[in-house]
Amino acid sequence: MRILLVEDELEMAGALSAALLRHDMVVDHVTTIAHAMQAARGELHDAIVLDRHLPGGDGLTLLATWRANGLSTPVIVLSASGELDDRLSGLDGGADDYLAKPFAVEELVARLRAVLRRPAALQAEVLKVGTLHFESAHREARVGATPLDLPRRELLVLEALMRRRGRTVLRDALEEAVYGFDDAIQSNALDTHVSRLRRKLDEAGCDVEIHTIRGVGYLLRQRP
C-alpha cells in the first residue's frame, strides 16, 4: 500500500513514516499544500494522511479542492484540535476519518487499515490466483495453507502483480508501487526482488508464475 503523508512537522513525519514502513506501507512525505497538490495528481496512493494546519493554508481547503476535482482516495485528517466542531468540519469537508493530536501511532495505523478495508478503497480483501492468496487487510501471502515469509518490498511487488494478474505490469508502475518518492533505487533492485519472489513461489510449489516481458515489465498468471 502506498500512503501520501502531508505533514510539516518533521519530527512527527519521521515517526509516522517509520511506523507505516514497519506495516508494509510505502510512504511519500510532503510538507506543503503545493507539493501535496502535485503528489496527489497522479492518484498513486491508496490513502492520504493530511495535517490540517500547513504552511500556506488549511488542509481542509486542500481537501475540498481534491474532492471537487474528483479525487476519491481515502483521507485521514490530523489536527491539534479535537473539538466536536473541528471534527465535524473535517468529516463534512470530505475526510474519511479525523484524528486529534496527540495520538498513538498504532491508532493511526489501525484507522488506515479501517479505511483501506472499505469497498471503495480496497479492490479485494483477498486476492487469489491459483493456489496463491494475498490477504490485503493482514498483509499476508500464502500458497494453499502454507504462509510465505516475504520481506516488505517483495510483498509489495506480489500485491501489485496480483492486482493486475494476467496483464503486463510496466516496470515504472511496479517501482511506483514499491518505492517512495525519496527512495534511492538501484538499477537492478526491482529485478532482484522479482527474482527472489519467483524463487520462493517455486519452492512453495505454487502454480503461479511470473514472466519477464523483456524491456517492458512483468506478468503474473496461473500455469496452464
Rank of each mutant, 00 (worst) to 15 (best):
V49P: 09
R199W: 07
G59R: 04
H133S: 08
G59C: 05
L60M: 15
L132E: 04
H53R: 15
L197K: 05
T31C: 08
P102C: 06
L63M: 03
G90S: 15
H35Y: 00
A137N: 05
A68M: 03
E175L: 13
F181R: 15
C206I: 01
A160R: 12
D96A: 09
S136D: 06
P55I: 12
A114Q: 10
T32C: 06
D92G: 14
L60A: 03
F181Q: 11
R164W: 02
G93I: 13
R111K: 05
D183S: 13
T131W: 00
L88K: 14
A19N: 01
A64T: 02
G144A: 11
L108V: 02
M162R: 08
V105G: 02
P151V: 08
H23A: 07
G14M: 09
R164A: 15
T31F: 03
V75C: 12
R2S: 03
D58C: 08
G94I: 12
G70N: 03
A64F: 00
V27I: 01
E176V: 12
A104I: 00
E83K: 15
H193E: 09
D191C: 00
R2V: 04
G94T: 13
R223G: 06
E43D: 11
G94R: 12
F181P: 01
L220N: 00
S89L: 15
E7C: 01
D51G: 06
V129A: 13
R111W: 02
H53Y: 10
A120H: 11
P147K: 14
Q186S: 12
G180M: 08
M1A: 07
H138G: 01
I48L: 14
L4Q: 05
E125K: 15
T192N: 10
R87I: 14
Q222E: 07
G205W: 02
E176G: 06
A177N: 10
D96W: 09
L158E: 10
L21Q: 11
L88S: 08
V208D: 01
M25I: 00
D183H: 13
G217N: 01
K101H: 05
D8W: 07
D207L: 05
L155Q: 09
D86T: 15
R113C: 04
T131E: 05
R196C: 02
E107T: 14
D149S: 12
V216D: 01
L132R: 09
A80I: 08
E154I: 09
L20W: 07
D97M: 10
R163G: 06
E7V: 01
L54Y: 08
R87Y: 07
D24G: 00
S72W: 03
L4G: 04
A34H: 03
D8H: 07
L158A: 11
D28C: 00
R142K: 13
H138S: 13
A47N: 03
A124F: 04
S187V: 13
F181D: 12
G14L: 10
L201R: 09
H211V: 01
E159Y: 02
V157F: 02
I33E: 03
L127F: 06
R41M: 11
D24R: 13
A40E: 07
